[in-house]
């Protein structure tokens, strides 16, 4: 049983890292970024390419940095232009971006399912409550916890974090107070994209790499964001953990409808608490 809880934490942790990037970009740019799943996918591929020449840890770092830079570029060229547009335009453009990135990866790395080996240091299993559990999965849980905690501290204590929270609450007033919103937004989008890349890199030893791998995590991340309340960091955290557990226990107890469970939760939230778990009713 404990093993299932841990597996839920692994998946919940990855979902949180992806979902929090969505929340950041939505909070600052009011853009629902459908291309976010492909940033996760691209992060895994960048890690794959770097790990082959420079080792696992450099690979993680490279994925985060490359994707953060790509985030800056996208903010400048795409998201900034989209922020005052009709939501349907942002959906179309970011979805188009997803297709472009998938085809880019297909062209560079091909369609085969590539694999990344678990780093030497984290190979093997440990015995937990009588069952063996992979060490690498414990690392994923720890990494998600550390990154999540770091992000929370940054948002709660740093000046930029203050701006971000203020901006997410009321962009116009924040701008009138003299905050350079463009710079704050650009750096936050970079952080969001970098986190997606990092989580892709962290997930790469667990998953087969394919250009379509971003799709399923994107959908579940959106469920996390909706359930947590659009624009809420703590809501996304709670929702990611809940969905990670639901997903796993769904497979254990009701396998035939397991993939429906997160959607059922989302529907229930939209009907009974449309502002999300942590959102404020408007």
């Amino acid at each position: 049983m404990l093993i299932h809880v841990l597996n839920g934490l692994v998946y919940g942790g990855l979902l949180y890292l992806v979902a929090v990037g969505l929340v950041l970009i939505f909070g600052l740019r009011q853009v629902v970024n459908f291309a976010h799943g492909s940033l996760f996918m691209l992060g895994a591929y960048v890690a794959y390419a770097t790990i082959a020449i420079a080792g696992f840890w450099i690979g993680l770092l490279a994925a985060a940095i490359v994707l953060a830079l790509l985030g800056l570029l996208l903010d400048r060229t795409v998201f900034r232009q989209l922020q005052d547009q009709d939501p349907i335009v942002t959906v179309l453009v970011t979805f188009g971006l997803l297709l472009v990135l998938e085809d880019f990866v297909r062209t560079v790395w091909g369609r085969d399912n590539l694999t990344v080996a678990v780093p030497q240091l984290l190979q093997g299993t440990v015995d937990i409550a009588g069952a063996s559990f992979p060490i690498y999965r414990l690392f994923v849980i720890a990494a998600a916890a550390v990154i999540g905690a770091g992000l929370t501290i940054w948002l709660k204590t740093s000046r930029v974090g203050l701006y971000v929270r203020a901006f997410a609450a009321d962009p116009v007033t924040t701008g009138m107070q003299g905050v350079d919103t463009e710079r704050v937004s650009a750096s936050v989008v970079a952080v969001g994209a970098g986190l997606a890349g990092l989580s892709g890199a962290i997930a790469s030893p667990l998953l087969a790499l394919s250009p379509a791998m971003g799709g399923s995590i994107l959908i579940e991340s959106f469920i996390v964001v909706v359930v947590g309340g659009f624009g809420s960091f703590s809501g996304a955290f709670v929702a990611a953990l809940v969905i990670g557990q639901l997903q796993n226990f769904g497979i254990v107890f009701v396998p035939s409808i397991a993939s429906m469970v997160p959607f059922l939760l989302m529907m229930a939230i939209l009907i009974y608490r449309p502002e999300g778990l942590a959102g404020k009713a408007s």
Binding site: H4, N7, R137, A203, L207, G215, S216, I217, V252
Partner: peptide, 10 residues
């Protein structure tokens, strides 16, 4: 196209 097979495998 599932990503996490841990529960199935267990």
């Amino acid at each position: 196209s599932s990503s996490d097979f841990s529960s199935y495998l267990l």
